[in-house]
Amino acid sequence: PPDDERKKAEKAARSGNEEKAREILERLGYSEDEARELAKRLR
């Protein structure tokens, strides 16, 4: 489910793995720019 994926992205971002967070968010349908912004904010 998307919620689980989003949680994974948050966890990745918090542990400093912004790249992985961005990949997950892009898979969820965010654009590259949106995903980058979100990954930064989740950190």
Rank of each mutant, 00 (worst) to 15 (best):
S15F: 07
R22Y: 05
E5A: 11
L42Q: 03
L25H: 00
D4Y: 09
G16L: 06
R36G: 03
P1W: 15
R27L: 10
K40P: 00
E10V: 13
R22L: 06
A12H: 11
L28N: 02
E23M: 08
L38N: 01
R14D: 04
L38V: 05
R41D: 07
E26Y: 05
S15M: 12
E26N: 05
A9E: 03
R41F: 12
S15A: 14
E32I: 10
E18A: 07
R14E: 06
R41H: 11
R22P: 00
A13S: 04
K7T: 13
R14T: 09
D3N: 11
S15G: 11
Y30W: 06
A9C: 00
A35R: 01
G16A: 05
R41I: 11
R41C: 15
A35M: 03
K20D: 06
R43S: 11
E32F: 11
K8D: 09
L42S: 03
N17R: 05
G16R: 02
A13H: 02
S31N: 09
L28G: 02
P2A: 15
A12R: 03
E23T: 06
E19H: 08
D3E: 12
E18M: 15
R6K: 10
E26F: 05
K11M: 15
R22K: 07
R22T: 05
R14V: 10
K20T: 08
E10I: 15
L28K: 00
L42W: 15
E23C: 11
A9F: 03
D4N: 10
I24E: 03
K7L: 14
R41N: 11
L25T: 00
D3A: 09
K11D: 15
L42M: 15
D4S: 13
E37Q: 09
R27W: 07
E34Q: 09
K7R: 14
D4P: 10
G16H: 05
R41S: 10
P2G: 13
N17Q: 08
G16S: 05
R41T: 08
A21Q: 02
P1L: 14
R6Y: 15
A9G: 03
L28V: 03
R41Q: 14
K11H: 14
R22E: 03
G29L: 00
S31K: 06
N17D: 15
A9S: 02
E26M: 15
L25Q: 00
L28T: 01
P1F: 14
E18K: 02
K40R: 14
E18S: 05
E34V: 07
N17F: 09
D33I: 09
A12K: 03
A35G: 02
R41Y: 09
L28P: 00
K20S: 08
E23P: 02
A35L: 03
A12G: 04
A13Q: 03
A39T: 06
A21I: 07
L38A: 04
Y30A: 01
S31I: 01
E19S: 09
A35T: 02
P2S: 12
E37R: 12
P1T: 14
